[in-house]
Every structure is written in C-alpha cells, then in structure tokens.
Amino acid sequence: MANPKTAPQRSDWQRNHERLLAAAAALVARDGAQVSLEEIARDAGVGSATLHRHFPSRQALLEEVFRDTVERLRRRARELAAGDPRTGLVSWLEELTIAAADTRGLPASLSAGAKAPADDTCHAVVREATVMLVDRASEAAAIRPEVSPDDLLTLVEAVTQATEGDPPTALRLLSLALDGIRP
C-alpha cells in the first residue's frame, strides 16, 4: 500500500518537473543553450535549489528539453536505413541539420553531449543513428572510405552552430560539404 505522505510529494515533484521543462523549453527557444538557470526556475515558479534537484547540470536539463526532437530523429534514421544507402545518409544529414539549425540551443547541446560519458545523451543517440547510416553507405561504396560518422557530426554541429535559426543557409553549407564525401 502506498504511503500517503509520499503520494503528494511525487505529484508535486512531477508538477515541478513539468513546469521546469516547460519554462526551459520556452526560454531555450528564445535565448539558446546558455539561458539563465535562475530565469528558468523563476519562470517555473520554483527556487533554484528545486531546479538543481531535478537537473544537476545545465546539460542534464538540455538533454531532457531536446529528448523528443532527438527521438523523432532516431525514428527517422531507422526509416531512412531501409532505402538507398547514399540517399538515406544524405537525407539524414539534411534532416539533422534542419532540426539543429531550427531548434535553438540544440547544436550547443549536441556538441556538449559529445564530451559526456553517458550512452543515453542526445549526442549519443544522434551518433548511433549516424554510425548506422554511414556504415550502410560505406558498405555500398556510396561515400569515400575515410569518411567517419564523427567527421560528419562535427560538420553538422559546426554548420548548425554557425547558422542557428537559419536552416536554408545551413542546408546550403551542408550541401557544399557533402560534395566532398562522394567517392
């Protein structure tokens, strides 16, 4: 039987968590990954200690803010893996670039996640999908043999950090770079 004293704490915890995520999503969309954590706590109506109990670091907060976007990208990579290897890889890189350029804060979060040891970061999810598609394209000799998943992710991260908020320019720059990976 549930302890009546823990049930309200759990719903209060969940409510605070949801309020923090909603405030963070809105403020990151406005200000980017370096948004003030104090402002997030204030907008959520909680103290900064509550924010830090829920999210021990800025990166942990960003990981959760971007989780749905990254999961959608993971599903899309699986769909693309069923088709032509070159087309699948190029489409993946284009869709990843659009999502990152169009989602304020995501490029910085992906870059920071590359330094994290955890296997469940947004960067790890994106990298896993990229590895799968690069491996398929390599096996089909659809890309140059020296092209690595990490090279392509570094390229996408650099392009999207430079063009955050401007997906058409990001795609144009990606297209120029992708000409260099053809065998």
Rank of each mutant, 00 (worst) to 15 (best):
D12P: 12
R72V: 07
R74T: 02
V131W: 02
A41H: 07
A129M: 02
R15F: 10
G47N: 12
Q161N: 13
T87K: 15
F66N: 03
E79W: 07
A29K: 14
H17C: 04
R15N: 07
R144C: 06
V147S: 04
V70G: 05
T103W: 08
S91M: 08
L152D: 00
A140M: 06
G45P: 13
L61H: 13
Q14Y: 07
C122H: 03
D43N: 14
E94H: 13
L178T: 07
D166W: 06
P183C: 08
V159H: 01
L133H: 02
I181V: 13
A7F: 10
A60S: 14
Q161T: 10
A170N: 07
T121N: 01
S57D: 08
L21A: 02
P85M: 12
A142K: 04
H17T: 13
T121Q: 04
T121A: 01
K115A: 15
V65Q: 02
T50G: 02
P117Q: 04
L80Q: 09
L62V: 11
V126I: 07
A129R: 02
A177V: 03
E139M: 13
H123G: 05
T163A: 06
D166I: 07
K115L: 13
R86Y: 12
D120C: 01
H17E: 02
R53K: 11
T50F: 11
A124H: 01
E39L: 11
P4F: 00
V125Q: 01
E64S: 12
A22T: 14
V134W: 00
A81R: 15
W13I: 09
D166T: 09
R58F: 14
E64P: 10
F66R: 08
T87W: 07
T169Q: 11
D166S: 10
L61N: 04
P183I: 05
V134I: 03
R172H: 12
R127G: 01
I181P: 02
A22I: 14
D151H: 09
R78W: 11
L110A: 05
A82V: 13
A124R: 04
C122L: 08
E18R: 15
I143D: 03
R67N: 00
D84V: 09
S175K: 14
W92C: 06
E94R: 14
A177E: 06
G47K: 12
V125H: 00
D31F: 10
A22L: 15
S57Y: 14
V125D: 00
R127E: 00
T169P: 05
L61E: 01
N16M: 14
H52Y: 15
L20W: 12
R136N: 10
L133A: 04
R182Q: 13
P149S: 03
S109V: 11
T97G: 03
S109A: 15
R30N: 01
P4T: 02
I143V: 14
A7M: 08
A44V: 10
A162I: 03
A2M: 09
V156K: 02
A41G: 00
P168S: 06
H54A: 02
T163C: 10
I98F: 11
V70W: 04
